[in-house]
Write a protein that binds this DNA or RNA. Structure first.
Lengths: 181, 181
DNA sequence: CTTCGATCTGACCGATCGGTCAGGCTCTGA
DNA sequence: TCAGAGCCTGACCGATCGGTCAGATCGAAG
């Protein structure tokens, strides 16, 4: 390397973002990041206090925007708050979708394990069936959001009776899905 | 322990499920599981070939059901396939929501880190605003599914232009959200 | 009483983790 | 010319990981 202007800091950030997105935060070692940058692990820890500091700096901007959205929501009531939240959250998710993806964690990695190899294919078909007309991007987006959202959150509702949860989710899905013509 | 009938196998499975749900798969060591069961780490590895074998056995039933759903979907076309997929997936997610939660990974753990401590509170308010009338369980479910689903999947659509993705997500949210009265 | 297989343990292994440290290199300014 | 700041390295540290192994303990069968 040798005095290549201090762009190393940003190189490390970019490399960490790429690695985190693929193998998750825990699944990415400082060694991995250093290898991707092309420097030593010690050099990474020269530019950042520790591993967590890299993640913190990567997420700094999206967190700022999230906090700003929180304040805007707090300044509204009822349907207004709902509209602000919907538009604000969608906007935030779109703008920082790469950073948010870094938090997805080990789910993708687990799917790589031999025991779950074929799940990938199955979920592809599941998405197609959900979308109805998979060639339309918006149909695919709707399907994926519903599938992932339900997968991610169902575990939160252990206290809700099965039938009630099932009914609420089905009603949501019927409302959200675009009809197949 | 000493000859307490071979219910140890199931005890290990149950303990692993509890730990995985809290700290994730990677974040849970064999030592952690052994401590929760009240036996040695070697005893855990006597009943299971390795760590992955525990996860595989925990997920065996839900994977069976998913495969069965896949076959049922493949046997239908168009709107029929959509209905089968919607009902089947919701049913699967509800029945195995505890197992599915084991795969959520490190997201919850990351939120515990001091740097992201206040995010919990913020997302609570975000959910309330989304739900409109947070006292209704179905409104909360809708909100959480949309929020988590969007967070989880946005990273998949790096190739879709911002405006197109934003429009598709907003349309989905408007369709799915129950109006505030 | 002896044997045997199932169950379980503590000690141990190599690998890898995040992080530290002393020192070397190179560019800059006095 | 030389001191010093900035940048970077290889060697090293303690901790923890998943996994192995020889042997202790125990109940049942002969």
């Amino acid at each position: 390397m040798a005095r290549a202007v201090p762009e190393t800091h940003d190189d490390i950030l970019a490399a960490a973002a790429r690695r985190f997105a693929v193998t998750g935060y825990r699944g990415t070692s400082l060694q991995d990041i250093a290898r991707e940058v092309g420097c030593s692990k010690a050099a990474v820890l020269y530019h950042f206090a520790n591993k967590e500091a890299i993640l913190t700096e990567l997420m700094a901007r999206p967190i700022e925007v999230l906090e700003a959205l929180d304040e805007r929501i707090a300044a509204h009531r009822g349907a207004d708050a709902q509209r602000v939240a919907a538009e604000g959250f969608v906007d935030l998710a779109v703008r920082f979708r790469r950073e948010i993806a870094l938090l997805r964690g080990e789910f993708p990695e687990l799917l790589q394990q031999p025991a779950f190899a074929h799940i990938q294919r199955i979920s592809e078909r599941l998405i197609d069936a959900f979308a109805g007309q998979p060639e339309r991007p918006s149909a695919r987006i709707t399907a994926l959001v519903l599938l992932a959202g339900i997968s991610e959150t169902c575990g939160e509702f252990v206290d809700v009776p099965d039938e009630e949860l099932r009914a609420a989710l089905l009603a949501l899905v019927r409302r959200a899905l675009e009809p197949v013509d």
